[in-house]
Each structure stands twice: as structure tokens, then as C-alpha cells.
Computed example of a mutant assay.
Amino acid sequence: MVLYGTLINGALIVIGSLLGLFFTKIPERYKKTVMHGISLAVILIGLQMAFSTETIIVVLLSLLTGAIIGEFIHLEEGLNRFGAWVGSKFTTSNENFSVAQGFMTASLMFVIGAMSILGALDSGIRGDHEILITKAVIDGFVALVLTTTFGFGVVLSVVPVVLYQGTIALLATQIENWVPEAFLNGLIVELTAVGGLLILAIGLNMLKIVQIRIGNLLPSIVTVVLVYYIYQLF
């Protein structure tokens, strides 16, 4: 089954998030210190991914074009409104912003990265789900920890995870006929690097070092494909 790995990934995110809801009442000082630890780990993950780039100009132009598009369409405001709307169905008004932040933070952490892409490609091309199952275990644990701080918003990240990885897995059954292997491998490297910088931004926001509008940078995940294609032409 092509979507087996993706469905396992989604299921463990939901299970981890639901378990995390039982730990939201722990003392604030514990949550704060644990969150600092998570933030540092997130920054490390982002840096490791960002340093994988082989063409820094592709990363730069992808972020530039993505930021322009995101600001133009007010993407982050829209995501916050969506999170607030969903949050209003399950939480008090004071928690709505946390729901939106939890949704965006968890979605970026679970969706972006080589494991998401390579795992989905392996599922579609070779029917091998090992990478996605390994990722599922990691995501489930991270979801548990994130939920103790962000609450219900984290569980909503299962939607983009399943749609993203599921789409790649389904397309992967034919992708070898459309995209040269060398181009695909190079694109994955640069996509991972762009995603790494966004994850790095999450860590900085979580530590309140700076407030980056990450939502308005999200289009760079799409523009990197076009930028890399144009770069390869020259």
C-alpha cells in the first residue's frame, strides 16, 4: 500500500498529541525549561538542514521570492485566523493564538526535511516504508512534547503531513518518468536547506530572541522548485 508509511506517520502524530494533552498541567517552570531545551534542539536541527545546501544563491532567492509572496497575500495572518477559528471550537479565546502557533510550528517541523521527501519517495517508488515509519516514531514523541506547550494546535498538523507526504508518495509512482534523478536529488538538498532555515526561525521564535513572521516565508518551500529549475538552466 503506497500510503502505508504516511498513514502510520499521521497516526503517531495524533497519538503523541493526545498523550501530550494530559501533561499540559505540569508546573510552568518545568514547561519553560523543557521548552528552552526543545528550542535549542530545533535550532540545531534547522542548522544541520540549512548547512546541507550546495548552492546558497538558490536558498537566498527562494526565501526572497517566498517572503514577497507571503507578505503580499498576508499568509501568516490567514494562518493565524484559521488557527483562531479552529481554536475557538475547542478552547477559550485566550488560547486561540497558541493553537495557531502550535499548528504552524508542528507542521513545519513534521513536513519539512529530507525524511519527509525521501520517505514518501521510497514509499511510492519502491514500496519501502522504513524511513517514514522511523520518522513517525520521532514525530510522535516531538508531538507529545510540543502539545504540552502549544496544546491542541499540534494535532492539526496531521492534515498537512498526510496531504504532503501522501501526494509525494502517489506522484512518486510516476515521478521517475517526469523528473531526471540528478535534478530531483539536487532539489531535495536545496529544499531541505530552505526548510532548515525556517525551522531555525521557529527555534529563535520559541526562545523569544526575535519574532520572525514564519508564515509569510512559507511560499519559499514552493518557489525553491522554480528557482532551482531556473538555476539549472544557466
Rank of each mutant, 00 (worst) to 15 (best):
M35Y: 11
T173W: 07
E190C: 07
Q174S: 14
P160K: 07
L18E: 03
V210F: 12
L121E: 04
V2K: 00
I45C: 05
I112A: 08
I209L: 11
G10N: 03
T147K: 02
G20N: 02
G124C: 02
S17A: 10
T24E: 15
G16V: 10
W85T: 14
I138F: 11
L118C: 05
T53P: 00
T6Y: 04
F22A: 14
L170G: 00
V227G: 02
I43V: 15
V161K: 03
V162T: 09
L204H: 09
F82C: 12
E130Q: 13
S39Y: 08
K208S: 11
L63K: 04
T53D: 04
I68H: 04
G215V: 04
A182E: 07
V34H: 07
S62V: 07
V179H: 00
G102H: 03
F23E: 06
S88H: 14
N96T: 15
G37L: 03
L204K: 04
P27N: 05
T33Q: 14
T55L: 05
K31G: 10
L171D: 14
V159I: 14
V222G: 01
S157G: 09
V225Y: 04
G83P: 01
T6D: 14
V59F: 00
I133L: 07
A84V: 13
I221V: 15
L118Q: 01
I13R: 06
F22D: 12
I45A: 05
Q101V: 11
G215Y: 00
T173R: 03
V86S: 12
I125S: 11
I230V: 14
T6V: 14
A106H: 02
T134K: 02
V58R: 00
V59Y: 00
G37T: 03
I168W: 04
G113D: 03
F90Q: 02
D128V: 12
L75V: 12
L12K: 02
K208D: 08
G113W: 01
A41G: 10
V194N: 01
V111H: 06
T148K: 10
G70Q: 08
I230W: 12
G196S: 03
L79V: 10
M104N: 10
V225F: 05
L146W: 06
T65Y: 07
V162S: 02
V154L: 03
A50T: 12
G46H: 02
A182I: 12
N205Q: 13
M49N: 02
T149Q: 10
K89I: 09
V142A: 09
L218G: 02
L12A: 08
V34Y: 05
N9M: 11
I221D: 05
G78S: 14
P27D: 13
P27Q: 08
I73A: 05
L63S: 04
M115Y: 04
I56D: 06
G16N: 04
L184G: 02
E71Q: 07
E71H: 05
I73M: 04
L63G: 15
L7C: 09
G20M: 05
A100D: 10
L218P: 00
L217R: 02
K208G: 01
M109A: 06
I230M: 09
T173M: 06
V86R: 14
Y228V: 01
